[in-house]
Amino acid sequence: MTEQDFAGRTALVTGGNSGIGRAVAEALAERGAYVVISGRDDARGNEVAAGIRSVGGRADFVQADLADLDSVQALAKQAIELGGGHVDVLVNNAGIFPMGPTADVAPADFDAAYAVNVRAPFYLVAALAPLMVQRGHGSIVNVTTMVATFGMAGAAAYGSSKAALQLLTKSWAAEYAAGGVRVNAVSPGPTRTEGTAVMGDSLDQLANTTPMQRVGSPAEIAAGIVFLASDQASLIHGTVLPIDGGRLAV
């Protein structure tokens, strides 16, 4: 039996209907949290929430387009209402990753990357962190990427957006610590998800640049996220945890 260390807490997981977000949502629910899952696909999101409920967990799905600021703000409001007036854990997991030469990145794709990867987390934190401070506790975990730390050809738009999220992690850590809110991030390496399936063999090739030379699983990334969100990480604050098979160690 998994320890119910998130019992009585509400968690919002963006992009919780697939990949890493789904693994996080399922793990948090298994450990007692009531989980609000957001995503764009109603059918898939409701399927994940129903699956959590079928094994005794508590979860609901809220449709949201994180590229739209009104939708982001509506998501925060709905999560607070569903959580009975509070959200204790925020996992900013949703992201998009336009890849390609800088000269080939369309303005719409660039704008969408910054809207989803930077603006959406910014305004979710703006809406939810002050309420966490009022309650005297809370945890925020942002999901970045290893290419936010080193340069990779073809990843300028994506990597720079996630580098901004890493800096926001540190800024929010400085801003909200006195109110009892911890803010951290994880930096995944190549991970096999529905979203990265389009990369084909190039995902394995990228993984071969890491010391462990293998692709990670959503569950392996989720384990780090859940740990940082938990009370076990009570003194860990303002850090970025690499979960990348050792890529940032070399």
Rank of each mutant, 00 (worst) to 15 (best):
M1V: 15
T2C: 11
E3K: 15
A7I: 13
A7G: 09
A11M: 08
G15W: 05
G16M: 01
N17G: 12
N17K: 06
S18I: 02
G21R: 05
R22E: 11
R22L: 04
V24W: 03
V24K: 02
V24N: 02
A29C: 13
G32M: 11
V35C: 04
S38R: 00
S38H: 02
E47C: 11
V48D: 04
A49I: 09
A50Q: 13
G51M: 12
I52G: 04
R53I: 14
S54G: 13
S54Y: 10
V55N: 14
R58C: 12
D60W: 05
A64S: 14
A64T: 11
L66K: 01
L69S: 02
Q73W: 05
K77L: 15
K77W: 06
A79V: 04
G83D: 01
H86A: 15
L90K: 07
V91Q: 03
V91P: 00
N93L: 01
G95Q: 04
I96F: 02
I96W: 06
F97S: 04
M99C: 03
T102N: 06
V105T: 15
V105W: 10
V105R: 08
A108D: 14
A113G: 05
Y114G: 11
Y114W: 09
R119G: 10
F122K: 08
F122R: 10
Y123L: 11
A126W: 02
L128E: 03
L131N: 10
L131P: 11
G136H: 05
G136A: 09
H137Q: 14
S139G: 15
S139I: 14
N142M: 08
V143I: 14
T144D: 01
T145F: 06
A153F: 10
A153C: 12
G154W: 00
G154I: 10
G154K: 03
A155C: 14
Y158G: 07
Y158K: 06
S161W: 03
S161Q: 08
A164I: 07
L168G: 00
L168H: 07
S171A: 15
A173I: 09
E175D: 13
V183P: 02
A185Y: 00
A185Q: 00
V186K: 05
S187M: 07
P190E: 01
T191V: 13
T196V: 09
A197H: 10
S202A: 13
L206G: 04
L206K: 00
P211M: 03
P211L: 01
Q213K: 14
G216M: 01
A219F: 09
A223Y: 07
I225C: 05
V226A: 02
F227S: 08
S230I: 13
D231M: 13
Q232T: 11
L235Y: 15
L235E: 02
I236N: 08
I236Q: 04
V240T: 08
L241W: 01
L241N: 02
D244I: 04
